[in-house]
């Protein structure tokens, strides 16, 4: 029986794979990597691409990751997968969106205040009208 080691693939949202494997093949930023038992401790960033996991019996499984990190410890390989497509400009766009949202919220604040003031004025006018009507009724009766 071939030697095997433990492999874990996790993303921020879920644990994707965990089990004993013979080999892990992934796309690192400096080139493709094949990890066999006894590999030196290593840490690398991953490019978007498949992570291939080869089980004891030679069975193969493919997981697609959009990036992340690969960590090799003496007896454990872990893949910290990104769930989202990451790129500097995409991140920038997301940040811009959040900023716009905040601005909108703050602009709405002024709208809300205006609305509040308008509602108050309306209530006042209604109260005045009611008073006038009551006065009229009294005057009619008297």
């Amino acid at each position: 029986m071939a030697k095997s080691f433990k492999c874990e693939i996790v993303s921020a949202e879920a644990s994707i794979f965990s089990g004993e494997v013979e080999q892990v093949i992934a796309a690192g930023v400096m080139g493709d990597l094949g990890i066999l038992p006894g590999h030196a401790p290593l840490l690398t960033e991953l490019h978007p691409g498949p992570v291939r996991v080869i089980h004891d019996g030679g069975q193969e499984e493919n997981y697609y990751v959009t990036g992340g990190f690969l960590e090799v410890q003496p007896d454990l390989v872990s893949v910290l997968a990104d769930t989202a497509v990451r790129a500097a400009d995409l991140d920038e766009a997301a940040a811009e969106e959040a900023r716009q949202h905040a601005l909108k919220e703050m602009n709405d604040a002024s709208a809300e205040i205006d609305y509040g003031r308008a509602a108050a004025e309306l209530a006042e006018a209604v109260a005045q009208l009611r008073t006038i009507q009551q006065l009229r009724k009294k005057a009619g009766k008297g």
């Binding site: 921020a12 949202e13 990104d82 769930t83 989202a84 497509v85 990451r86 991140d91 920038e92 766009a93 997301a94 940040a95 811009e96 969106e97 959040a98 900023r99 949202h101 905040a102 909108k104 919220e105 703050m106 709405d108 604040a109 809300e112």
Partner: peptide, 29 residues
């Protein structure tokens, strides 16, 4: 909006199954 304070980033409508992708922008800011 009511309390005031300097709001630099906002994000709503995350739903029941929030995704990391939805948070990247706000965290980045």
């Amino acid at each position: 909006r009511k309390y005031g304070g300097e709001l630099v980033a906002a994000r709503s409508g995350l739903g029941e199954a929030p995704e990391v992708q939805d948070l990247i922008g706000s965290v980045k800011i």
